[in-house]
Design a protein around this nucleic acid. Structure first.
Lengths: 225, 225
DNA sequence: ACATCCGCATGACAGATGTCATGCGGACGG
DNA sequence: CCGTCCGCATGACATCTGTCATGCGGATGT
């Protein structure tokens, strides 16, 4: 588990020759919880002569070990996964394997997701309703040192501004998301009931919602949850 | 009613086997809104020698026209699509092209979805976290007259029982899902506010929820929304 | 014809929720 | 050292929500 740092000697975006891996196939890890989708994407990538899917993961908490074990050049991570989100896995990878390029691939083009993916060290962000050709393309480009981000989404992320919720507000909103009552929230978070009401109230106002349910919806939609 | 077993020859080229299409490739329509997933699945199916993806649709309301235009044998429909759900599209196909076999393919293995897919005339129900090999397999099997349903899901669907909500309750719950207030629901549905409260109250009790938010969550989870 | 269910409605009531004013102690930056 | 923000808390208040009893007309089924 130790000798398997990234085999490429690139201390920066220095593509020597046609590819950054010096002619050998690009080693890709694919993490996505739905087998059918994962295997289909793997088949798609497998059609590319210069790309090889050397590892697959069905859970976020399998990503790091798999990346280590297979000397991976690029990790393709879905966000919504059991165990650990793709965002969390990206942060983990950056800490442990800083050479590795992380591409985040997701169903939902939520600006907040893009923002946190970037903060977690991802260098590309793809949505699943983009054309399939962009996938292989993104793999090659991140390896060449580029960042790959849908400009529309990037603009949206900038326009949204940052998440206005404080940590506490987010925490409480998340806990309230599945219909818990104030009393239950208070008990679960070791707060008084009045405090819970306060946080929810400010969150509701920040999100311009009419009640907690709508606030949850808005926060979720923007990727702020 | 399908007492005949399909020949175990389905992995080979099967040039002249007793297939339902008489040896020519099976013509498949693939409907799925996320391009990347759709194209990946198409690539996967394209690898099978006896299957040909002759049409793709990104919206539910494009399905019928596409199926008509391309003389399709099997339609693979995602449920969550803009325009029309895969379930609705399945019903439409059954009415217009009764010979066509419909396979419903979905992210969520919700028992209620299975139930309504079957009622809409689907002959197979696949979840996307099943192994990719099941996809081509299902296509062949439905064409041979078989039904393809995950036994675990089938059991769950039977165990759940039917949707306990009346039409009105479902309607109101759906309308309440994104945080509308009672007054707004009443206005939107031309009901008195008291009536709205009554429906929500009975829905909440039928679903054993503590409030409307949880009721929405439970109904959604079971595919009853 | 009659019981039964559904859609619709009221009114009353308890409890949950959202808002506001106010306060305290700690952390952080200037 | 002081202002400002955050986390936490209270109390009071208006409103919203969920429950219950009750009723009526229409459809359905036996």
């Amino acid at each position: 588990m130790t000798g398997t740092h990234s085999p490429a000697e690139d201390t920066g975006p220095a593509p020597d020759g046609p590819t950054a891996t010096g002619g050998r196939p690009i080693r890709v890890l694919l993490a996505e919880d739905q087998s059918m989708v994962r295997e289909a994407l793997a088949a798609l990538l497998g059609l590319e002569p210069d790309i090889e899917v050397v590892a697959q993961a069905a859970r976020g908490d399998e990503v790091l070990a798999a990346a280590r074990a297979h000397a991976v050049d690029v990790a393709l991570l879905d966000i919504e996964m059991p165990g650990r989100t793709g965002i969390e896995a990206a942060a983990e990878l950056r800490a442990a394997l800083p050479e590795l390029k992380v591409v985040v691939l997701t169903t939902f083009g939520r600006p907040g997701y893009l923002r946190s993916a970037m903060e977690a060290g991802a260098v590309a962000f793809l949505v699943k309703d983009a054309p399939a050709a962009q996938l292989a393309d993104a793999v090659r480009r991140v390896l060449a040192g580029e960042r790959v981000i849908d400009p529309t989404l990037a603009a949206a992320a900038l326009a949204e501004g940052a998440n206005p919720l404080t940590d506490r507000e987010r925490e409480i909103l998340r806990a309230a998301a599945d219909g818990a009552t104030n009393a239950e929230l208070a008990a679960a978070l070791h707060l008084s009931q009045g405090t819970v009401r306060n946080y929810l109230s400010t969150a509701i106002q920040k999100l311009a919602a009419r009640n907690r349910a709508e606030a949850v919806g808005i926060a979720r939609e923007k990727g702020w949850l």
